[in-house]
């Protein structure tokens, strides 16, 4: 029995940063419950990560190792996690709102007949009934809702960069091995191949030059690329971003997409070109330190969140801007 269980994620043998954030959240909740928090690690080899986790203070680190858990095959993982939950019987299970959590969460919720809240930005315990209060942005971020549901375990996936990572403490916990009864017959979806792509890591950018529907055509991104190059002479890590519409139209690949279903970023400078600022986009970039908006429509949302605004056709302003930037550098 554990009060709060964290499903950790292991990246290249080590604990993922998001897991430390989850441990931070778990520790807080355990405090509110007057209970303990533990960590569950799954994979083909997670011993190193389990050792690494102990100093952060979980009461237990459950280690579920199985050769079949190499890579992420959702069918095997969800069954293993289901079995682990039955064995550990936690009151609360937290997962990261990551690729893994987004897939496992709903399926696990269904199997355990519990209710999940995804992409939470705050969590606390209702002192009345000990249930988990799950705070989540809804309507693309236009409203903040707090959910409370019955069922055990109480389930939530947690947005990254919201909770402070846990710090090391006494670390008197123990590592507990648990088993999973799985075999290949569980696999309904077979992996044929994994293809690595040249993915833009927008969250590492210092400056993002982003384009949207207002570009009018795919060629608009060529102009943005020129601006990106010009800015690269003065700034490190300048990258191209985009709105959802640009991806839908097939102008650019989705790894460039900023927003709720793209990448959530907080660069030093965000330049929004021809992006009106649907709320789903805004929540993904509004944390930028400085926001510059270029748009022909003075009434658009983007000007409301921008520090600097230029009401002008981007095809007019950007070539001139590139020229001026060259002069400055």
């Amino acid at each position: 029995m554990s009060d709060v269980l964290i499903l950790g994620e292991v990246k290249e043998g080590s604990l993922d940063l998001k897991t430390l954030e989850l441990l931070g959240a778990g520790k807080k909740l355990a405090g509110e419950l007057g209970g303990k928090f533990s960590l569950l690690l799954m994979g083909d080899s997670v011993s190193g990560a389990a050792d690494e986790a102990l100093p952060y203070g979980p009461a237990k680190v459950y280690k579920l190792e199985h050769a079949l858990l190499q890579g992420f095959k959702a069918d095997l993982w969800v069954t293993s996690l289901e079995q682990a939950c039955q064995e550990i019987n936690p009151k609360i299970l937290l997962m990261s709102h990551s690729f893994i959590g987004m897939e496992l969460g709903p399926r696990l919720a269904c199997r355990l007949n519990s209710r999940l809240t995804t992409d939470c930005i705050d969590l606390s315990i209702d002192p009345e009934d000990g249930l988990l209060l799950r705070t989540k942005p809804v309507s693309g971020g236009n409203a903040i809702s707090v959910f409370k549901c019955q069922g055990e375990p109480q389930l939530a996936t947690v947005r990254g960069k919201v909770f402070t990572p846990v710090e090391t403490s006494d670390g008197s916990g123990e590592i507990v091995d648990i088993k999973a009864d799985i075999d290949e017959s569980i696999i309904k979806v077979a992996s044929l191949e994994v293809v690595k792509e040249d993915i833009v890591s927008l969250d590492k950018a210092n400056v993002v030059v982003s384009g949207g529907a207002g570009l009018g055509e795919e060629d608009g991104f060529e102009l943005l690329e020129e601006l990106r190059e010009a800015l690269s002479k003065s700034f490190g890590n300048v990258m191209i971003g985009c709105s959802r519409v640009a991806v839908d139209k097939g102008w650019i690949s989705s790894d460039h997409q900023v927003g709720l279903t793209g990448t959530m970023i907080s660069p030093d400078i965000y330049v929004a070109v021809g992006i009106s600022g649907a709320i789903q986009h805004l929540v993904g970039m509004v944390q930028a330190k400085k926001i510059i908006a270029i748009n022909t429509d003075p009434g658009c949302n983007m000007f409301k969140v921008a520090d600097y605004g230029v009401i002008e056709d981007y095809e007019e302003i950007i070539p001139a801007l590139i020229e001026k930037l060259e002069e400055l550098s």
Binding site: S98, F99, K188, V189, A190, S191, L192, E193, V194, V195, K196, E197, I199
Partner: peptide, 10 residues
């Protein structure tokens, strides 16, 4: 998937 894409079959 985070690093690109996976081809799967069912």
């Amino acid at each position: 998937i985070p690093i690109g894409y996976e081809r799967v079959k069912a």
